[in-house]
């Protein structure tokens, strides 16, 4: 499923994530789709959202297969608990998930309590975005490719001191 998020959708997602951070006292959270694309994130100061998203989507997908192996359908919540930091992943739908990072000062129970509520709200926004379709903004945005043949360029060779 491809998502096209308008600024309004992004605002709604961001409010949901901000609320989740306040309610759960978590450090950061993000929403990503099953392909590992970052849909939105909040509070991530040092971690790369792209990497968290890629790894989170991978872990969640693998866990989903484990669940199916056990005849469970899905595990709606996956928790990795560390000494100082923990991660909780919660299914938003079959196509997206919410990842919450929290330290030992936050309560696992509180995060577990609020994450599914946030996930339900995110689901509502994504359904809205899906109904809007992939051309939601095409009246105002035209995608124009640059003329350059090379999308990616090699690094400049280091200058040789004279």
């Amino acid at each position: 499923m491809a998502y096209t998020l308008t600024p309004q959708h992004v605002d709604k997602l961001h409010r949901i994530l901000d609320d989740l951070l306040v309610q759960s006292e978590a450090e950061g959270c993000l929403v990503c789709d099953q392909a590992g694309h970052v849909l939105d994130h909040a509070g991530l100061a040092t971690q790369s959202p792209q990497l968290l998203s890629a790894l989170g989507a991978g872990v969640f997908a693998a866990t989903g297969e484990l669940a199916r192996l056990l005849g469970e359908g899905e595990f709606s919540i996956v928790l990795h608990e560390g000494n100082r930091k923990s991660i909780l992943m919660c299914a938003v739908s079959e196509e997206a998930l919410i990842t919450v990072i929290f330290s030992d000062s936050a309560s696992v129970g509180i995060v577990k309590l609020y994450a599914p509520t946030a996930a339900a709200s995110v689901r509502g926004v994504l359904e809205e975005a899906r109904e809007a379709g992939i051309y939601a903004e095409s009246e105002t945005a035209a995608f124009v490719l640059s003329d350059s043949d090379a999308v990616f360029k090699l690094a400049e060779p280091a200058a040789v001191p004279s």
């Binding site: 809007a132 051309y135 095409s138 105002t140 035209a142 995608f143 490719l145």
Partner: peptide
Amino acid sequence: ARLVLDRFITTHTGRERQPRELVLV
């Protein structure tokens, strides 16, 4: 990358537009 971008452009601005009644702007 070029092929992927070409397909992206075609899909999002191309001929196969979804019916207008499904579009919320």
